[in-house]
Amino acid sequence: MYLTDEAQHYADQHTTPESALLARLNRETHVQLLHARMLSGHAQGRLLSMLSHMVRPRRVLELGTFTGYSALCLAEGLTDDGLLHTVEQNPELESRIRRYVQEAGHEARIQVHIGDARHVLGGLAETWDLVFIDADKINNDTYYELVLPQVRPGGFLLIDNVLWGDKVLPSYSPKPSDKDTHAVRAFNDKVQADDRVENVFLPLRDGLLLVRKR
C-alpha cells in the first residue's frame, strides 16, 4: 500500500533528509535500473537508520542488498566495532554496491557477499542483533527459520514488502499460480502465530514487519 504522491511528499518533507551520497544513489538507481522501487528510499531508509541507532547493533545481517541503499542506512547505527553482512544474489549489482560502500567509508564495516543467501548463511557464524530480510519473497520463511536461531534474545528482525502491493489483503483473490502472494500471506500468518517472537506490522510503503525475538 503505497502513499499517494502528495502524502509521500509531505512525509518526506517532515523526515530528516537523506545524505547527499544516499540521494545520489537513490537517483542513480531510479535512472539506471529496472524495478527501482525495490530500493528502500528516503523515508524507509531513515526508519532503518533510526532503528539501528536505537538498537546499536554490533552485528547486522541484510538479505537482499539491491544497490546498497538500505545497507548504508543500517550501518549508521553500528557500534564502533560493529559489522554488517549484506547478501545480494545478482552479481551485476556488485560493482555498484562496492563503489558506494567505499564512498561511504564503510569498507571495514560492511561485508558484501554475492550469492544465494541460503548458501552464504551457512558460512556466517555470528549472533545477530538486527536482521533485515528483503530478498525473494517466496523464501521469506526459509530465511526466517535459518536466521532466527542466530538472533540474540531481544534482537530484532525486519521483513520488507509484507503488504505485497495489497495482494495479501483478504479482499484480494490471488491465482493459484501466484506463488509469491501465497508465500507472503502464509509467512505473515506464521509470524503472527509464532510464540518465539513479538511482532508489529507497519504499513509503511509496501509493508514492514518488525519482529523481536523473545
Rank of each mutant, 00 (worst) to 15 (best):
I97D: 08
R37K: 01
H30V: 00
S52D: 04
R98C: 15
E62W: 09
N161W: 08
V151C: 04
L74N: 02
Q102P: 02
Y69D: 03
K167T: 13
L146N: 12
L158W: 06
H53K: 06
R37V: 09
V191M: 10
Q89K: 15
L51E: 02
A7L: 15
T65I: 10
R46V: 12
D178N: 00
Q89W: 13
N26D: 06
R58K: 00
V101L: 11
G207E: 10
E28Q: 03
M54D: 00
L34C: 01
L157I: 06
I114E: 07
T67V: 08
V55E: 01
A7Q: 14
D160V: 14
V87P: 02
H30P: 01
N139A: 03
G45W: 10
L33T: 03
Y144P: 00
M38G: 11
G77L: 01
Q8S: 12
D141L: 07
E88W: 05
P174N: 07
H106F: 10
M1W: 10
D166F: 11
A104E: 07
S95L: 14
Y2V: 10
M54H: 08
S173T: 15
S52K: 07
V120K: 14
E92P: 06
R196Q: 11
Y69G: 04
V191R: 09
V168C: 03
L157T: 02
L22C: 10
G45H: 02
G105F: 00
E126T: 03
R27I: 07
L84D: 01
F66M: 01
G115P: 13
L146C: 06
E92M: 04
L25A: 01
L21C: 10
I159L: 02
D166V: 12
R24W: 01
N90M: 11
G123D: 10
V191F: 09
A183F: 05
W128R: 00
G41A: 08
L74V: 03
R27E: 09
I133H: 02
T65V: 13
S177K: 14
H9M: 08
K175I: 08
P153S: 00
G122K: 08
R98F: 14
C73T: 14
A108R: 08
L146M: 15
E198R: 09
V120N: 11
S52F: 09
H14D: 11
T127L: 02
D194Y: 09
K175V: 13
A36S: 15
V87T: 04
V162K: 05
L33P: 03
L78K: 04
I114L: 06
G165R: 15
V31Q: 12
I138V: 11
